[in-house]
């Protein structure tokens, strides 16, 4: 298939950046979206031009690195998948595809499509630790956990920290990510011990990073590659309210 690509090019954080147009030919529908970009980059290198920088690692939907907005959708048009799991058969011959970096003041562009998502790492760090013994792995059944609870916690835990929720949110809010991280531990007895400290720390850090505030639009859950539900946000709201009232820290 033949494609026209309009891609955001920006040499560094201070560069103003602009869209460049590229034409590609002979793209197979079996290629993944990232393979299509690989073909483009080979073409650019033979033309002695700088290849397009984009992030990728696992290429199987588990690392969350492949952040980009494709025709206005983070990770492209397929529901519940990452960019690396998107295939060219989702597009038609002759299509124009606009590719932009995730846009959020808290995710500054490093180069082209690569953004700095370390704000997420700092939110996770602010959550602190959980009290479990290290060393030998525990017996799996030492702490009995009801099946439904385990599944619910697992659903929240599938968040891969990709940042698509922030990119999709009209307010660039990080509530879905933060709430998934708060919830998957809050739902389990192992995580309950520090749950007060955790939610206060993570929400506080989230606010400091400059993300927007949640308007409950639901755009995040619609675009999340792991289909994390905004029920997690409600749970975090409850946890935060409870923690603010019950914590004995005055400041």
């Amino acid at each position: 298939m033949k494609l026209t690509l309009k891609i955001w090019r920006q040499t560094n954080a201070n560069d103003k950046g602009s869209f460049e147009t590229y034409n590609l030919d002979n793209i197979s529908t079996d290629m993944s979206f990232l393979e299509m970009l690989d073909v483009l980059n080979e073409q650019l290198v033979t033309e002695k031009k700088f290849p397009v920088s984009f992030e990728h690692d696992c290429r199987e939907g588990i690392c969350g690195a492949c952040s980009m907005v494709i025709n206005g959708q983070p990770h492209g048009p397929m529901k519940g998948t990452t960019t690396c799991q998107l295939h060219m058969r989702s597009f038609n011959d002759g299509d124009t595809i606009v590719i932009e970096p995730f846009r959020s003041r808290a995710f500054p562009v490093i180069r082209d499509l690569v953004v700095d998502r370390s704000a997420f790492d700092r939110i996770i760090q602010a959550g602190g630790y959980i009290s479990v013994n290290t060393g030998q792995a525990q017996d799996g059944n030492a702490i009995p956990i009801e099946k439904d609870t385990a599944l619910a916690a697992f659903d929240s835990a599938t968040c891969i920290g990709c940042g698509a929720c922030v990119a999709a949110c009209p307010n660039a809010s990080a509530m879905l990510f933060t709430s998934a991280k708060v919830s998957h531990l809050a739902k389990l007895p192992q995580g309950e011990v520090e749950s007060t400290k955790r939610v206060l720390g993570m929400v506080n850090q989230m606010d400091q990073e400059g993300f927007g505030k949640c308007s409950n639009t639901g755009a995040c859950e619609a675009e999340c590659p792991k289909e994390i539900s905004i029920e997690n946000i409600a749970l975090m709201n409850r946890e935060y309210l409870k923690a603010s009232i019950s914590s004995d820290k005055m400041g």
Binding site: K6, W8, F19, V69, N71, G72, Q73, V98, E100, R103, S104, R105, A106, P170, N171, A172, S173, G210, F211, G212, K213, S215
Partner: peptide
């Protein structure tokens, strides 16, 4: 919230 986005998108769904 407007400030949190910064640069907007060219294409919006």
């Amino acid at each position: 919230n407007v400030a949190a986005r910064g640069t907007g998108y060219k294409v919006k769904k």
